[in-house]
Each structure stands twice: as structure tokens, then as C-alpha cells.
Write a protein that binds this DNA or RNA. Structure first.
Lengths: 212, 212
DNA sequence: ACTTTTATTATACAAGTGTCCATTAAAAAG
DNA sequence: CTTTTTAATGGACACTTGTATAATAAAAGT
């Protein structure tokens, strides 16, 4: 069962193409294996020799996106030194751009009757990105799994709300909103004369600022 | 179709009882309508006259829990005046106790192949609780929907991680972990002599402290 | 080009799904 | 207690699901 067998490649891409087309017209959870195979001209038994269910086929799209997300995430931290909560460059939060770019896809991931497993894929991916980032900045004294879970899901909360509002804001606007949220959380410490010490960078995002 | 018709009450409770028993032995997504009806001695057509799918029956359990969650949530804010990020009474965060008490149920809600809609029910409920709480404390200058989404999902991120670790910590321990996370986020502003001003209460939770 | 390997097909099966309708029986209304 | 209302039943329908197996055909290996 070499993965390079031409027959396998042909079958799989036919199935993916069929699913892509069906997703333009109906919800993921209402698409049947039979339907995909009919459209792809592939025997139903062949489908089951490659995938267990419709979702497994959909998941293959997901893997590619997660790679792109990694790239989107790492970018802003190249400029982490110049970040100030007050003047965060809206373009910095690339994660919103990544989602905006693929909003067609994320619309499905966040839709009601889809299994939560896709959300978990996204969540765990962001969590890992944050956790890796934390290690770069040394020990925090806080349970790393819990802290990263808190921070990752906080961002995704904003994204969920964004998708619930049909992605009507631009990614740049979303970044602005996030900045205001972070500022609000830290409102106790700013605007205090003679107290201009770097206020923990982007704690809402990775929690790993540039100080200490 | 008065909701008080004895036949309806009898049928519905028989179906619920059957589902409850089945859930002790197998996953929600692997339980069929046929199976429930067989166990409940209810005609399959009768099931469909009340519910559209197995999930709709499960959702009825959920409604009750959300009421209990409201009670659990409101409790700690009766003591909000005495809250300090440094010495937050672990018992204060009742939401963890609520989940611990019903962990049997939440284990299902957070399990992989279940639809994300249940998570949304929980998320939106917590979001509303936080939003109401925000209004009590006046305008924030931040998009209320986005801020509450951020804060609600942050807490749920910790809960997801908790369930992923099979709820091995106690609710009290979880509260302690949350306190440490919040302290970490605010580490830039504490231990600064002569700067003992209430540090924004519980921003990670509701973001509405007691100052201003 | 020929042989070997194996992915794909056609077909069949038992089981579940969602929907419909005529019949039955239990509850509500008088 | 009798009548009226309507929930529940039993049976049937076309359809999807997941699995299995022998036959076919396309690719890989020599």
C-alpha cells in the first residue's frame, strides 16, 4: 500500500474534489459518504478503505491549514521587542489574518452541528504554539498546560465571537479589539505617572512579555 | 399537545431514563434512536414526534445544568469586595465545583466526537453571565461581546485542559491554578512598594474589578 | 513485455434513518 | 360515564451505513 500508487492518488483527489464542491452547497454534517462517492465516481467500498467517515476526509484539509497557522503565528514574535500594549501594530496579530484568509473553511469548523474534534485540533495547535513560546522565555512558575490552555482558548473565544458575527470585522479591526481587551485587563497599572515599566507584553496572547 | 399530557410525560421520562442508562456503557455518538426506543419500550415514531435526533434528547439534560451553573456563578460575586488576586479564596470559584459535581456529564460534553453545539451552549451561557456582570459595573469602553467572549472562553480553556487530564485535580486545586494564572498575567504590577491599589479584581474571569 | 501485486469494483447483507399513515388506546373535556 | 381529542403504535417505504468477498483491472516490479 505505497502512498505513491497512482490509483490511490487519483481516488483521494477525486473524493476531495467532490467534498469541496458539496461543501459549497450544504453543511458538512448533512453530506453522506454515498453522496461523495456518487459525485466522485468512486466505489463506496473504496472510500471506506481510505477513510472511516466523511469527517476523516475533511480532516485532511485541516492538516494543511495548521501548517499555515504555525507560519502565521511565528511571524509577529520576530518583532516582540518593540511591542507595547498601548501601540500594538494591528498587523502584528497574524493569526486573525490567517483565519480571515481561510474564513470559508473556518465557517465550517465553527458551525453548530460539526463535531468538536476540529475545534480541539485548532485549540491544541494554538496551545502548543503558545507553550513553545513560553519555554523560550524561561520558567513561569505556573502550570504550563493550564496557562497555555487559558491563553489559547481566550483568543479562540474572540474568534468564535467573530465567526458568530459572520466575520464582519476585518482582521485588522479584530487586532485592534484585542489590543483594547488587553489594555482593559491591565487598566489598573497604566496611566500612573512615573510607572512606565513594560506592562507584561502580550499576556493575553502568550503571556510571555519581554521583562524579567 | 398540552405539555402536561400524562402520556407525553411518561414517554419522555422513559426515553431519558433509557439514554441515561446507555450513556453509562457507551459514547453518545454511538447510541442510536432505535436502541433508546428498544430500551424505553417506546415506538420509534413516537421518539421522532418529540425529538429530531438523539442529541435533542441529550440537550434537555443540559438545560437543567445551565440553571445550576447560573447559581454557582453568581455566588462568588457576593463576596467580590474582599477579593484580592493574591489571596483569592479557592472556594470562591464555584464554577469549578459545578463542573466537578457534574463531571460525569461534562466528560461527555467535552468528548471528541460530540457536536460542538453543546460546547456553544456552555460558552454562550458563561458569556452571558459575564456580560450581565459587566453591565453592573458600568461601561468598559471595550466591545462587550468580544470582551466577554475572551474571558468566558479563557476559563473554559482551563476546563478543557482539566477534562483532558481526566479531572484529576480537585475543584479547589483548579481555583488555585487559576489564581496563579491571573497573578502571572499581572506580575508586572504587584510587589511594587507604595502601589497597593486594587489590581483590577478578577479580570481573567469577568474583567470587572471593584475599583473606579 | 510479462508476471506479480494490490487498489478498485460489483454485489450483497443486516442494521439504522427519517418519514408516512391508518389503527388503537389513553387521557382530557363535557 | 360518555364523548372528543390526540398521543402512541405497528407496519411500510426508500434510503444510508458499515462490512465482507469474489472478480476485475490498473499499477509496480522484474
Amino acid at each position: 500500500m505505497r502512498a505513491t500508487d497512482l490509483r490511490i492518488i487519483k481516488t483521494k483527489s477525486a473524493l476531495k474534489e467532490a467534498l469541496t464542491n458539496l461543501l459549497k452547497k450544504k453543511a458538512l454534517n448533512s453530506i453522506s459518504v454515498t453522496e461523495i462517492c456518487r459525485l466522485a465516481n468512486v466505489n463506496r467500498g473504496t472510500f471506506y478503505s481510505h477513510y472511516g467517515q466523511v469527517g476523516d476526509l475533511f480532516e485532511e484539509f485541516f492538516r494543511d491549514l495548521m501548517t499555515d497557522l504555525t507560519d502565521s503565528y511565528l511571524e509577529p514574535y520576530k518583532h516582540v521587542q518593540i511591542l507595547q500594549t498601548d501601540e500594538l501594530n494591528p498587523d502584528t496579530i497574524r493569526i486573525f489574518h490567517h483565519i480571515e484568509k481561510n474564513s470559508e473553511f473556518y465557517r465550517i469548523v465553527f458551525s453548530e452541528s460539526v463535531p468538536i474534534s476540529y475545534y480541539y485540533l485548532l485549540f491544541h495547535h494554538v496551545q502548543e504554539l503558545i507553550k513553545n513560546d513560553m519555554h523560550l522565555h524561561g520558567e513561569t512558575g505556573v502550570d504550563a498546560a493550564m496557562l497555555s490552555a487559558y491563553q489559547a482558548n481566550a483568543i479562540l473565544g474572540v474568534v468564535i465571537e467573530w465567526s458568530r458575527q459572520n466575520f464582519r470585522q476585518s482582521a485588522a479591526e479584530l487586532s485592534g479589539i484585542l489590543v483594547r481587551i488587553l489594555n482593559f485587563q491591565f487598566r489598573g497599572m497604566k496611566a500612573r505617572p512615573g510607572d512606565n515599566g513594560s506592562p507584561a507584553g502580550q499576556p493575553g496572547l502568550s503571556g510571555t512579555g519581554e521583562h524579567e
